[in-house]
Amino acid sequence: MRPAWVEPAASNQPQRYGPRGGTAHEDVFGTERTRSAEEVPRRFSEAVRAECEEICGRYPQRRAALLPLLRVAEREFGCVDLGAMRLVAEVVDVSPAHVWGVFSFYTHYRRPGTGRHLVQVCRTLPCELRGARAVWERLRSRLGVGDGETTPDGRCTLKRVECLGSCGTAPVVQVDDDYHEGLTPEAVDRLLAGVLGA
């Protein structure tokens, strides 16, 4: 069974326009469409609560701690889900709707259903000029999934992203927090063997 609240499978993704495919906000809409999924109640431990208070104290207003606390939730629960958003709303004292509105603006938080490793492949011009397409093709064929999809064993989610700020060592792939630079299809094979144990 597909985990609850994942990006929709390719087949029911919005029709992409143009022969080259399109862009855009399917990521967020996809999440929204499936957000009626069951909500898991979330709680922070005492220690994490204290950490949250410390973070709130850095700003003149608590709500400014929203983005950093979503990071804390991501670290604690492995992703930012509805329960996490409700919890963060309570901590920074805003409505859950506000948290949802803010969260859905940003692409970098881990959505529920993301695999254990998140592989983000840069597709912007400087990377494409130096072979990002071949790197993407290799990753896609080795993992057997497309953009925004997760391998059936839940090990890995593959995602195409815009410039990662490392164009001088293009093409670049970010696996979780780490950058892998100057990649070739062969280097992708080594990367998959080493980092992902695939």
Binding site: R58, L67, P68, R71, F105, T107, H108, Y109
Partner: peptide
């Protein structure tokens, strides 16, 4: 303070 963005 370091404040991390989230991809935008």
């Amino acid at each position: 303070h370091v404040h991390r963005g989230a991809g935008a």
